[in-house]
Design a protein around this nucleic acid. Structure first.
Lengths: 189, 189
DNA sequence: AGATCAAACTAACAATTGTTAGTTAAACAT
DNA sequence: ATGTTTAACTAACAATTGTTAGTTTGATCT
């Protein structure tokens, strides 16, 4: 069953509000007000507040999971793989920064199987990233620094791009990607 | 007026819960339950839920502000200044990761003058960081990549260290600092 | 024209929220 | 011993929360 236009509209408004104030601080009345309807009317389109969160978070998480699977199974060099992951994060950030903020800040408000599913995807993602880095170090493509520090420093930057994206729309997508790859891979010194 | 032991205990418990679920999702009854008292009893020690958040966030923010002022006014090289900032973030993360999580995730729930004060401190902090980087580039210590990308990639890593800290307590404070400096400054390739 | 359906509405609900008022009991100071 | 402070308590509040039930309206289809 496809998501109707109106339902998608509700999801988009919710994502924007969730980003600004966090899931718990946003009320159904807040969402409704922006759409110029009453809170009860939202329930003609969505099952619950929870469902909105699930739809926002899980879709993005699955996209990360799917692209990561492609990358990790490819025959590219470790560096090329990392570059593709950087591009993935930038691409999604430019396309839907609100949903990305929800994924980062509000995932813990998922419940039961949705929460389990999300955590499994996130763990798999990090494991795959680690696999890429490990092979890169073994192959001599990547310096032999502490693996946790390497993984964290890159992933944390990519994951929080959404915070920063608005400020720098001067930069084109391509220029952003190029600079980010240089800074993350080659350092600044 | 000093903060009493009991008050500090409340603040610490609150910070832990705020980190786990976010400010809005934590109730006064949640905080009280962990301390094995009733929610109303909290008000013998604190003025409001808001006050708890202010005490958590502002104190840490002021520490960042103060150390940054020292660093930026010193005669160190740009690289040495950056290293000192990295050490500052790691130090505070190891000392109080819960409060740091609040600062990152719940600052938007501050109100009025507290919110203004916080935002001013954060802007000043970023401006100072930018000043250090600009001078570093002019002096040829730092590569001439896009300034925004450089600033963001380093700051985002330092700011979200608290997410990651638990997982890697294998690493000593010194080893963590050394590796972080290497990765952030020299890159991984 | 009449039936159908989507999407808005009003009204209300039970639960939960932060907080206040007033009370009690123990520890401490005089 | 008596008065004072500290820190817990019970009880209650007004507001807000997500959600449901039942109704209305307008457009679309037959």
């Amino acid at each position: 069953m496809k998501i109707s236009d109106r339902k998608q509209e509700i999801i988009n408004v919710a994502a924007k509000l969730f980003k600004e104030k966090g899931y718990s601080a946003v009320t159904m009345r807040d969402i409704a007000q922006i759409l110029d309807i009453k809170a009860a009317s939202l329930y003609n389109h969505i099952k619950s507040k929870q469902e909105i969160l699930v739809l926002i978070v899980i879709e993005i998480a699955e996209e990360f999971t799917n692209v990561m699977r492609e990358v990790v199974n490819s025959n590219d060099s470790a560096i090329k793989k990392i570059e593709r992951i950087i591009e993935l994060h930038i691409d999604i950030t430019l396309r839907d920064s609100n949903a990305l903020a929800c994924l980062n800040n509000d995932w813990m408000h998922l419940t039961d199987s949705d929460l389990d599913y999300f955590i499994k995807m996130r763990n798999d993602y990090e494991d795959n990233f680690r696999t890429i880095m490990e092979k890169g170090i073994v192959d001599g493509e990547i310096k032999n620094y502490n693996l946790d520090v390497i993984i964290f420093s890159i992933l944390s930057t990519l994951r929080t791009l959404y915070i920063w994206y608005n400020k720098t729309n001067k930069l084109s997508s391509k220029a952003l990607t190029d600079n980010m790859i240089k800074v993350l891979l080659n350092g600044i010194v």
